[in-house]
């Protein structure tokens, strides 16, 4: 690995100013589980690595009944699944953070980093999308907010502009009778990159027999994590039944644009989208009923 400069700013302003000055030559470091490996293998270049972990805002993990969850960009996975409020209110997010990498990786890896790495197969992005999460981005002009589903624009690329970095994520408070679920398919049982990932969230009616609304998002079947709005919309006002779930799964299957690579064939991926979407919806419904 070649040498690079390292900076550890203490404030958002300081970080923004460094990033603005160095532009593409600078890379943001939080857990480092992607960045360091990429630098070592020459897949990314950086003259300056900006470690944001000393900035207070990026370490925030707090919940309020109005504002929902504030998840700082540098909060590692283990802190998230160790948090009782998140466990209780956002089990769909717990699904994802507890299967990123292995135990050691989860001690360092962050949801913010997973998002900024912008892998189509990132495990935390589909659940963030179905939970309606938004990205709070800090930059030279102050902060702006972007829905998670609009954050990634291509493999490894995001909407972040020169001088900007991801400050935190906002996840709205869970509605009544709602639930979310994420699962993925991998050939082994851990430590693999998703062949397909599927997240779903549902809001059910008072009697929990009808869908009020639903959201479905997929991983590893398009250049970016895929929000399949029409699959969720198709469930609105439909009865909670195998048939309606299957219909939504079919829509997701049709929306997927998978490729064949060494991790899976396009046919297998498309098939898995149907199976996993159904299972994700079933999981989300189970949670909504238990809520």
């Amino acid at each position: 690995m070649y040498d690079f400069d390292y900076a550890s700013p203490r404030s958002v302003r300081e970080a923004v100013s460094l990033l603005e000055r160095r532009g593409d030559d600078a890379r943001v470091l939080s857990g480092g589980t992607d960045l360091i490996v990429q630098l070592r293998e020459g897949r990314r270049k950086a003259g300056l690595v900006v470690d944001i972990k000393e900035i207070p805002e990026v370490n925030d993990l707090s919940y309020g009944p109005r504002q929902g969850l504030r998840l700082g960009a540098a909060v590692p996975c283990y802190k998230i699944y160790g948090n009782e409020t998140v466990q209780k209110l956002y089990p769909g997010l717990i699904d994802a953070v507890s299967l990123v990498g292995g135990i050691q990786i989860q001690g360092r890896a962050t949801v913010g980093g997973n998002l900024c790495n912008a892998s189509p197969a990132a495990d935390t992005i589909p659940p963030l999308i179905v939970l309606g999460a938004a990205c709070v981005i800090a930059g030279p002009q102050g902060t702006r907010t972007v829905p998670v589903e609009d954050f990634c624009i291509a493999p490894g690329r995001t909407v972040l502009q020169r001088g900007e970095f991801l400050l935190s994520l906002r996840i709205p408070p869970p509605l009544k009778n709602s639930g979310a679920f994420y699962l993925r398919f991998i050939p082994r049982n851990e430590m693999d990159i998703a062949v397909v990932g599927a997240g779903a969230s549902v809001v059910l009616g008072k009697r929990r027999t009808v869908f009020v609304s639903a959201r479905v998002a997929l991983g590893a079947v398009a250049p970016t994590p895929l929000f399949v709005r029409e699959a969720g919309d198709a469930l609105a006002e439909k009865p909670v039944s195998d048939e309606s779930i299957q219909q939504a799964a079919e829509i997701a299957r049709a929306a997927a644009r998978p490729i064949s690579d060494m991790r899976g064939t396009a046919d297998h991926r498309r098939h898995l989208v149907g199976v996993l979407t159904r299972r994700a919806l079933e999981g989300a419904i189970r949670r909504a009923k238990e809520s």
């Binding site: 050939p187 082994r188 049982n189 851990e190 430590m191 693999d192 060494m262 991790r263």
Partner: peptide, 8 residues
């Protein structure tokens, strides 16, 4: 991507 057996 060369997958050997893991603990799980």
């Amino acid at each position: 991507d060369y997958k050997v057996v893991g603990a799980m």
